[in-house]
Design a protein around this nucleic acid. Structure first.
Lengths: 118, 118
DNA sequence: ACCTACATATAGACAGCCTACATGTAGACT
DNA sequence: AGTCTACATGTAGGCTGTCTATATGTAGGT
């Protein structure tokens, strides 16, 4: 997966995996890996700063917990974050439709096709 | 359309509009606008440098022409560029499938659904 | 002692899309 | 003559988010 392609979609991904339940960073990475069937292996250097950014903006809140002697910072969606997720979802729908439409082979000829031609 | 979302997809877009016929920069911008139903209004400061980059890499070739007293630099796909376009298309398919899959509401519960609900 | 998995964090590199600006022709309107 | 819009290309510099690399530390297995 080309790293640049993720640009501008990371927030949606993060917000989405946190929709059902709060998770800590490491678990979020594993959730993305699992939900994507192994395609999304996002490095910690991407996820942790992104989570902090989303918290700073107000879409997430976090709290520390200690489990099995290890410290975790668990993130959860705020109300604002939940609204944002909805927005990100519809933005994705539009984005995918637009790009997919332009990328479709011979897209511009569809409306002017008269006879099937190999 | 969030600018960052385009990151890493611009090349595919550009290559795609040049598939059928060679076009100059200004016409490419108009083609993107038209094919996207008005959604993709890409600034010249994005398109011209991108076209030069794609030419430098070898996916495009260009030549100058004068039409109606105005100079145009017309770009066309090279064989290499045509191959690249195919690659970009399948990359897009995978990308859209993966992101769409992760973003789908309640995606993680699909496999554990027992009774139809809603 | 060493390795792997778990867990968080930061610094700096890198790349590409954007805003803003510079330059110039053609044609319409006043 | 002056102004405006559309057409047409181009560069400089800003911005921002993802990545690589590194640092730190616990727990558990061999």
């Amino acid at each position: 997966m080309n790293p640049d392609a993720l640009r501008g979609h990371m927030d949606a991904l993060l917000l989405s995996v946190l929709e059902r339940e709060p998770l800590h960073g490491y678990a979020i990475i594993e959730a993305l890996l699992e939900r994507s069937g192994g395609a999304l292996n996002v490095p910690t250097g991407t996820v942790y700063p992104a989570l902090r950014r989303l918290e700073r903006i107000g879409y997430l809140s976090s709290e520390w917990a200690t489990v099995g002697g290890r410290k975790r910072r668990t993130y959860r969606l705020t109300d604002s974050g939940r609204k944002r997720l909805e927005g990100e979802r519809s933005a994705w729908q539009e984005f995918a439709t637009v790009i997919g439409g332009v990328l479709r082979p011979e897209a511009a000829e569809v409306s002017s096709v008269r006879a099937a031609d190999g």
